[in-house]
Amino acid sequence: MRSTTDLVAGWLNGRFRQVPVWLVYLTGAAYVPLLFYWGATGGLGVEPIRALELELGRIGIKLLILGLAITPLRRYSGLNLMKFRRAIGVLAFSYVALHLLVWLVLDVQDPARIWADIVKRPYVTIGMAGFLLLVPLAATSNNWSVRRLGALRWRRLHRLVYPAVLLGAIHFTILVKGLPIRPSVYFAIIIFLLALRMRPGALLRRA
């Protein structure tokens, strides 16, 4: 017998099938010039560099979390967003890269200080390590690479996203002054999504 969840998931899957992937790329990409426009015209407040940096980083980590949620969503609710996963991953990397670029160019400015910060400041070191783990994933987010590496090796390589997103969450948590309530919520969601993968979830589902 089909449950309500299955029916809702089935209906949603039908809707999502009609959404072209390019629309996801376009929406994700269109928000970037909008952010810079707001930053330049006062829409991000009186300290736009900081606001822009924070917003790009936050969107980056949210997209990474969304990417992590796709497999468990399909497994436990039947909702299938698999066709958007690459777009979400590529966009997540782009936002993280822009976050880094704003930090380098607009925030810190001084090349000598950038290197000093990477070496000396744990939150920068950790954030940078997380970014570097994402680089090979972004570079292999194309069909040619999947064929070239083979599905198994490609999947193994892309497990790097697990440590990357954890480093991202640590980076966010240790930046905060006082009790880091908001970053802790991100952390809890990430741990939950990773824990789902450690349990043999398929066993629970197979009926």
Binding site: F36, G39, A40, V46, E47, P48, I49, L52, L106, V108, Q109, D110, R113, A116, D117, R121, P122, Y123, I174, L175
Partner: peptide
């Protein structure tokens, strides 16, 4: 311990404000 205090950014300098 987590960041440098050698420089600062004046609020209100816009997107290309110098430290």
């Amino acid at each position: 311990p987590r960041w440098s205090q050698a420089t600062e950014r004046r609020v209100g300098g816009g997107l290309f404000s110098r430290r």
